[in-house]
Amino acid sequence: MIYTNHKIEFDPDKCVGCQLCYKACFVDVIRWNYEAKKPIFKYVEDCEHCFYCQSVCKRDAIKVLPDPSSERLHQHFERYE
């Protein structure tokens, strides 16, 4: 989807820099900060709330907060009324 409003909560204190979340994102939302050894949630507007980053993180450092109401289905509901 595009133009969505999903959010991601990240706790850098819990993160141990294993890179798994960075690798797990299938649509390039997450990039890697090589200096800080932490993920950067750079393109959150493109997040598809697949939950992979959250589920691979062994430190519980990531929480995905989806907002499905921001996803448009493009059906013509207005025409059916």
Partner: peptide, 24 residues
């Protein structure tokens, strides 16, 4: 398992009724 649990928790939170629509 973990992936499934995360998704289940999410759908439980948002699905209050059984209305459906088609999605491409």
């Amino acid at each position: 398992q973990r992936f499934r649990e995360c998704r289940q928790e999410f759908t439980n939170q948002f699905d209050n009724d059984l209305e459906v629509v088609p999605l491409l």
